[in-house]
Design a protein around this nucleic acid. Sequence first.
DNA 1: CGGTATCCTTTCCGATACTG
DNA 2: CAGTATCGGAAAGGATACCG
Lengths: 125, 125
Amino acid sequence: MDLPTPPQQPGTSADCRPISQMLGRIGDKWTIMTITMLLKGPTRFNQLRRMIGGVSQQMLTRTLRALETDGLVSRQVYPTIPPQVEYSLTDLGRSLAEPLTQLTIWVLDNIEQVERNRADATQPS
Amino acid sequence: MDLPTPPQQPGTSADCRPISQMLGRIGDKWTIMTITMLLKGPTRFNQLRRMIGGVSQQMLTRTLRALETDGLVSRQVYPTIPPQVEYSLTDLGRSLAEPLTQLTIWVLDNIEQVERNRADATQPS
DNA sequence: CGGTATCCTTTCCGATACTG
DNA sequence: CAGTATCGGAAAGGATACCG
């Protein structure tokens, strides 16, 4: 029941949509934050939640499930009481972390400039 | 009338939300595609639209406006008939393009593996 | 050509309640 | 602790019509 390749003209160049879709997934802010945090090592659910900050339990769960499905994160359950679950990056996940880290560094370096530009655009006085 | 810093516990670590927000913006798939395409040089609206593929006129307009507001893209209008509008990256935009390109390369290199992982997760037979 | 305005559907995502 | 289930408002985003 998947979209069987929606209206795509034969005349247009290579279909970039699979790439767009993939970028939409991994470009997701929670995904980026999650992978970045997991770089520090295996981390438990609520620990991750606190590290990221501002993420709801549902969103973190959904993000982690998607990452697990895609083979970027692995989930290790320790059947203790109370239960303990550790998430960690797979090799594939670690390979993605590198470009994501570069992106985060860019944000840290340039967020102030962007916010200034944005303010100038609002108040061009 | 902006959100004046929503509920943030004092006990939590540094507030990552400005960074999350910024990542949510530039991590947007249309934004990534647009900036990547503009790396090839100044490009006209419909040209860009065709290059990206699968983007509605509205979304491309919105994406370009946002990028312009943030100072990542500049817009040059030639008052010819018919009108001609060229978009190009600013220096700031070009600096962002580098990490984004790395990300796109990762996607190209790993999309097949991810899709296999995803299929395996659906059919674990 | 390069938009803007409007409508409308789909998806996102937070809040809440409940579970092993 | 680490979830799952359900709901509802908000936001994203496509389709269409129209304009300079």
